[in-house]
C-alpha cells in the first residue's frame, strides 16, 4: 500500500503500525512528534495505531536547545 509520508508518497507493507514504520526508519521516538491524518498522536498509541492505504503521516524531528 501507499501512504503519504512527510508530504511524499511512500510504499509500505499492509497492516503496519506507526511504531513499526518508525522502527524501520530507525527514528528515535523520544525525539519525534507524529501526526497521523492531521492529528498528533501520543507515543502510547504508536503501537496500536495501524496505517491504511492513503493515510498521511508527518514525523517531526526535534533537536535540543532553548
Amino acid at each position: 500500500m501507499e501512504i503519504i509520508f512527510n508530504g511524499k508518497p511512500r510504499e509500505t507493507q499492509d497492516s503496519i503500525s506507526v511504531q513499526e514504520f518508525l522502527n524501520q526508519l530507525q527514528l528515535d521516538c523520544m525525539q519525534v512528534v507524529v501526526e497521523h491524518n492531521r492529528s498528533i498522536i501520543a507515543r502510547q498509541r504508536l503501537d496500536e495505531t495501524l496505517l491504511n492505504h492513503g493515510d498521511t503521516l508527518e514525523v517531526i524531528h526535534f533537536v535540543g536547545g532553548g
Binding site: M30, Q31, V33, R43, G64, G65
Partner: peptide
C-alpha cells in the same frame, strides 16, 4: 524547553 524529549 531545552531538551528535545521534553519538547515532544
Amino acid at each position: 524547553f531545552d531538551l528535545a524529549e521534553q519538547k515532544v
